[in-house]
């Protein structure tokens, strides 16, 4: 297990390097520069600005310089919000985004897996049909549809919860964003769990466990649950990717001071270091989360780690 873990951790670094290199190239290939929108700049001032941020140097030098900075945890200065460094901007927004994202994944696990188990155990009965229909709907609808609808219903019509805002993470303000993000993930988890639990329950070794005289509950908890949860675990990586994507929308809809807006606004402003910083941070998060999911999978299913 330890060797497996070390090998997987070693694989992170080259992937991260590829991400940094590819996104550096794409960002720099984009026509237009960060100072295009300030039309009053004289050529001399502009040249000085370019020189100050090193934009007049060859791309290879800039790339080497950027990588060198990254090794020290320095993302460089922000070109659009010039009083801040990228590190400061991300440090402000990231706690908000991470809180909402992790709560959403937790909520999705807590709702989705039991719902899938219920649907599988009472297969083809009322609860199963209801859950399946609900899950189909929740998977089909994107968060930029459910988010505003939740805000409309629970915020404006029923006055149960605030429509937007953050207020230092007061629970009332967290409910709707977290729910919006968690809903499709929960629905997908429920479907996965239902399908795999049904498959496991129909397998020969479960039948033989029953034949040995073990009761239904005992078979379920001791024998069926662990293998049935494997697909759900391997979905955790894609789930995080979904939550990261969804957080862009949720932060816009509910006015959260997270990092999502930096990516979109940074790309529009050609704020190279800000966009790069966001890609590096989110890319690392995704890779690490995928790694955790894989290690969990290897722990649950020994066949994987001996491959």
């Amino acid at each position: 297990m330890l060797r497996y873990a070390l090998r997987r951790i070693g694989g992170l670094i080259p992937t991260l390097l590829v991400i940094v290199t590819v996104s550096f190239c794409i960002v720099r290939l984009a026509p237009g520069g960060p100072f295009d929108q300030e039309q009053t700049l004289t050529p001399a001032v502009r040249a000085n600005l370019d020189h100050l941020y090193g934009l007049d140097q060859p791309l290879a030098t800039q790339y080497a310089h950027y990588l060198g900075g990254l090794l020290h945890g320095d993302f460089g200065p922000s070109l659009s919000q010039r009083d801040f460094t990228v590190t400061e901007l991300i440090a402000q927004g990231l706690p908000v985004s991470v809180t909402v994202g992790l709560l959403a994944i937790l909520l999705a696990l807590v709702i989705g897996i039991p719902a899938g188990m219920v649907a599988a155990i009472w297969r083809n009965q009322g609860a199963d049909h209801g859950l399946t229909l609900f899950a189909a709907l929740a998977v089909a609808l994107p968060s930029f549809v459910t988010g505003p609808l939740f805000a409309l219903v629970f915020g404006l019509a029923l006055h149960w919860l605030p429509v937007a805002g953050w207020e230092r993470g007061a629970p009332r303000y967290l409910v709707l964003p977290v729910l919006t993000l968690a809903l499709p993930v929960a629905a997908y988890l429920a479907r996965l769990t239902r399908a795999s639990l049904l498959e496991v329950l129909g397998s020969p070794w479960i039948r033989s466990a029953r034949a040995r005289g073990l009761g239904g509950t005992r078979v379920l908890w001791r024998h069926a649950l662990r293998p049935a949860l494997l697909p759900a675990v391997s979905y955790l990586g894609p789930a995080l990717a979904y939550v990261v994507t969804g957080s862009l929308v949720v932060e816009t809809v509910f006015g959260l001071p997270g990092t999502g807006r930096y990516l979109v606004q940074g790309a529009i402003d050609r704020d190279y270091p800000l966009v790069m910083g966001m890609i590096v941070v989110y890319g690392t998060l995704l890779l690490v989360f995928n790694l955790i999911a894989d290690l969990l999978y290897g722990w649950l299913d020994p066949r994987v780690r001996h491959e």
Partner: peptide
Amino acid sequence: SLPYLFIVII
């Protein structure tokens, strides 16, 4: 394995 959304946004 790349966070493709970012690439698309860019």
